[in-house]
Design a protein around this nucleic acid. Structure first.
Length: 303
DNA sequence: TACTAGTGCTCGATCAAGTC
DNA sequence: GACTTGATCGAGCACTAGTA
């Protein structure tokens, strides 16, 4: 590793963190947030000087459950997780230290490695439209809201990381978001997709073992990722509903993801709100990890 | 601290109308 | 009658701010 890179990383580690009690996922004050897009050339130069080890086959970014990294490791391929929930001090992509840590992990990737990213979508999906106020002509949403700014910067830094890493490493990646997310409509994501010739597919995670149907968009460069496309029919829906009932019956405490009910006095209008187990639905099922691994290993062996 | 109200996008299914 | 196209509807959904 270059001396400059080492010094910068060390300085970032020494700087005090200003943790906020109300939101673990933002370990820094907004004044200390780091916008990587404003430092591209500087970062590019640092990356060019990297001379450390290259020993990772998979990087599981934002994957708190770690199902991807675990799957790769189980199959004998070194993998690592990056998630603020696991390491609030070093894995905060909103901060310079967190960004540099991710950069270092990216530089450790071997040729043809896999990067899977599932950025937080709470401030991107339709369910929280009343808060983020995103729409087709303004996917950046209400930037007077701190959480919206936070979400936007996180996604922008992710896109910047992928763009810069593609200059120095040959790798494949997949970014996952629920289908109603505005993430892939953001300008920087469209630019990234065009730059790296990404494909976009639609699928349903229920086909890979998820409790809920969970319609999902995948954007990325992994060869043959189109084979992950699934179509949900009425019969499939019934099959997965029955499967969920069987699973719930076996659980000591059945999971409660959300409540859906009709509004008083209105015949059709439905109201939906999440429950405490909603966060579980963010975990990737092992079948999904296996499906991606299968595509990856085929491509990797054909290198 | 606990509770409640409110937000709307996406995809698949279905049906009607139009075209060959 | 078979097929295509477009409109409409239903189902599903990694929440948060405001208020008592």
């Amino acid at each position: 590793m270059s001396l400059l890179f080492a010094v910068w990383t060390l300085l970032c580690c020494i700087l005090p963190l200003e943790a906020t009690k109300e939101d673990l996922r933002a370990s820094l004050d907004e004044d200390n947030w780091f916008d990587a897009s404003l430092h591209k050339e500087e970062l590019d130069s640092l990356m060019r000087d990297y001379q450390g080890v290259r020993n990772l086959c998979c990087l599981d970014v934002f994957g708190f459950s770690g199902s991807m990294a675990k799957h790769w490791t189980k199959k004998g391929f070194p993998a690592i997780q990056y998630d603020i929930a696991l390491n609030p001090r070093s894995d905060d992509l909103l901060g310079k230290r967190g960004y540099l840590h991710l950069t270092r992990l990216g530089l450790r990737l071997v040729q043809g490695a896999m990067v899977i990213l599932g950025p937080p979508c709470a401030m991107n999906i339709y369910l929280s439209t009343s808060v983020h106020k995103r729409h087709i002509f303004g996917p950046e949403g209400d930037t007077s809201n701190k959480r919206v700014r936070m979400s936007n910067l996180l996604a922008s830094n992710m896109a910047c990381f992928l763009e810069l890493l593609s200059r120095h490493r040959s790798f494949w990646f997949i970014v996952e978001q629920p289908s109603s997310s505005y993430l892939f409509k953001m300008e920087f994501m469209l630019a990234l997709s065009a730059l790296l010739f990404c494909k976009k597919i639609h699928t349903w995670l229920a086909f890979f073992g998820h409790d809920l149907p969970k319609p999902t968009h995948l954007v990325g460069t992994l060869p043959d990722m189109g084979t992950l496309c699934k179509k949900m029919t009425k019969a499939d829906r019934a099959k997965f509903r029955a499967r969920l009932e069987r699973r719930q019956a076996k659980r000591k405490i059945p999971r409660k993801y959300y409540i859906k009910e009709k509004k008083d006095g209105e015949q059709k209008k439905m109201s939906v709100h999440g429950c405490k187990d909603l966060a579980f639905s963010a975990h990737y099922p092992s079948g999904f990890a296996h499906a991606i691994f299968k595509l990856w290993i085929t491509a990797f062996q054909n290198l």
